[in-house]
Design a protein around this nucleic acid. Structure first.
Lengths: 224, 224, 224, 224
DNA sequence: GATGAATGAGCCTTCATTCAT
DNA sequence: GATGAATGAAGGCTCATTCAT
């Protein structure tokens, strides 16, 4: 994160701003969470240790347990942080899109590929949490496929577009195809040896949208 | 595997033949691989230990390393086993489908939801390997998104159907949407708190196919 | 080392200062190296475990790896510590002896039987490392027979004494006989069921020196 | 050993001598002991495993425990085998030398460097046992420094030569210097990075003998 | 707040030993 | 006799957690 606080602890000048020896509780926590995301991306979930996270953050080993009481809590809070960030991203995009269902669908398709959200580290971390979700209920709840609000909004948009004559079929299934296509493209971006770029990713999602709503979308995006 | 020996070690019926104390090399290896899949599904990748695997197989701890040298090799061979099983499943289905591209596409869509392949344990294991794939090249290579043969076949089918007038658009992108939709539905089956069943899974995939090739598919399957 | 902390963990006198829970890095390392020497002497090289070493030092198991990363490194550093201690001992004795070759030879013969160097534990540890040296290049390099400086000094002394008319023959061979006699007596001290004492050890070495330089040495030491 | 039986078990021709599937008990034991010596030399005492020994002998793992009940017994019997071989070597040489003490001393000096005894593997194995002898009484007893017969013979020879006017001094100490010089040269041959050859080894021992008995020996051997 | 030494549980791995074939 | 799969104890190593400074 570009706004992460400087971890260097000893750059004190008399009149300079005080060195971040004591950093705000929340800033330190966020710094450690970002380091956790980077570490999971770099080493994998199974091999991520607290020492790795501390080193990535440029902090001492003991600080991690000071701010998060245990490794489990650090990981849980990292996932909650990612989930909240994700939620704010698409709800914000939706709000900015206004009431038109076509614009709202376009906003949701684009939101998941925003550069702020869709970084390699975040994709990797998401994928790692998915992999562990199967046997950890707390993780499972935070997965996109269990985001009932997201699903409800997507279904509502599809239903309104179908009602408006933009397409036909079961809105729940169409909404699901759109959602899993996005998730599948995310998986591609993470797991492919030679992944395609953001444009091709969006193009793929738009290809799907155009198949269901040909009057409104083309493979290149919103129909003008 | 349906013919794998029962992993339950204490389910001996009075007159049943005693479990073989010594087993052929390959049979033992397969038994341990099956136990590994079950263990990953039950405990997650990060918490899977060799002791867990051995207990699941009803065997001793040291035997795992006797047959696989190391935990890493056991996991690698488990993934290779899953990948080979998966490959044989779709190539077999394809062969049985004959030359017609519509039948071939139908076969590929159905293949990934065959009960033999699409068990909860196998889905979980796949997902766990995906989660670790990002930072382990050997895992990454075995992921479906890197199966060039699969992608090539799917693209070829789409191209032929488009050429036959069954649809329109870029066959590579259509093939990708179909593939990631299948993968996304797999993810749903694994990560959803209340997953839908096989029929709804297939219905979702067919909904996608019908959007691209409406003359050939409906949301219920092949158009009669 | 005489100033090493008492390895007995439970010999606390009521008013004695409590053993320091945290010790400087180097002090801990030296304490662990001393414990390693004692353990090798007591249990033998092949049966020395990290748990033994930790127990001998009155510390926990994990601390050994914290300071030395691996058992191999602990053993290597123990040998380097012994080798450096040995080198400092004979070079120091040499320096104190002044320029006269007779005094220098006397100093070198006596140095190897100094009580600080020639303790039962250290002899045992040296012998254990010799036994493993054959197939571990890093050990082999540290053996006395590969100490080129020692050999060069010994040869130079013998050459000067021969030039002064104190003896005759090939200085390289005479130096070698003196060196291997010392080593052989060390072996005796370690491996004999009923070893002789330091006086008899020195007497044996002086017997050898007297045979080559009869005008300068007797079996009792320097000729007055 | 050049006379070790062929380990190949399947080279049976109709009229050829029967394949050594069933080999004499003693031949198999000797084969395994030779393999043990080679393995200790190649891998070191601490890293020698029964699997290594079996592989070195070209035999199966279980055979080792069949013939020797345990690893400890195999090692003990290997040492006894080496010790007996060594004893037979010097006593035989002594017998062949006749009654003259000068010839007897010459025979003993030469015996320890006979090519049959003084192979790299045997030297290494001896050194390894010495390294472990300190804390294993059974090993300690078999070390050369505890061979009372050897010491007695050497002292008796020195005493007779001194009585004959060939030298002067304490025969026990002279005998010890000669013995430890031989042992020290053995150590050199094993532990030196660039060891000298057999001629230089003998030359060194003769240099020592010549120092004590100058009328009888020179650095080149027996005085003509 | 912050640090890093210290602890100890638990894991992977090795290997001597056993035993069915 | 001979084989090699199977067992289980024990060792090296990792790492989450604690705590004195």
């Amino acid at each position: 994160m570009s706004d992460a606080p400087d971890p260097t602890p000893d750059a004190a000048a008399p009149d300079a701003p005080p060195p971040p020896r004591k950093l705000g509780r929340d800033a330190r926590r966020q710094q450690l969470i970002e380091a956790t995301i980077e570490t999971i991306a770099a080493r994998g979930f199974a091999r991520t240790t607290l020492t790795d996270v501390a080193r990535m953050a440029g902090l001492s080993h003991g600080l991690v347990n000071f701010h998060f009481q245990s490794k489990d809590k650090l990981l849980t809070e990292t996932l909650l942080y990612l989930a909240e960030e994700y939620r704010l991203n698409w709800t914000g995009a939706l709000e900015a899109a206004g009431p038109d269902p076509v614009a709202r669908l376009d906003a949701m398709l684009r939101a998941d590929f925003e550069p702020a959200i869709c970084t390699p580290s975040r994709l990797s971390a998401w994928c790692a949490f998915w992999g562990e979700a199967q046997c950890r209920p707390m993780y499972q709840e935070q997965c996109g496929s269990n985001d009932e609000a997201y699903i409800a909004v997507m279904e509502s948009i599809c239903a309104r577009m179908i009602a408006a004559g933009d397409g036909s079929g079961d809105p729940a299934r169409i909404a699901r195809v759109l959602r899993v296509t996005i998730e599948g493209v995310w998986l591609d971006l993470m797991t492919m040896t030679k992944p395609y770029g953001r444009d091709e990713a969006l193009g793929t999602v738009y290809t799907c949208a155009a198949a269901f709503f040909p009057g409104r979308f083309t493979a290149a995006g919103l129909r003008a």
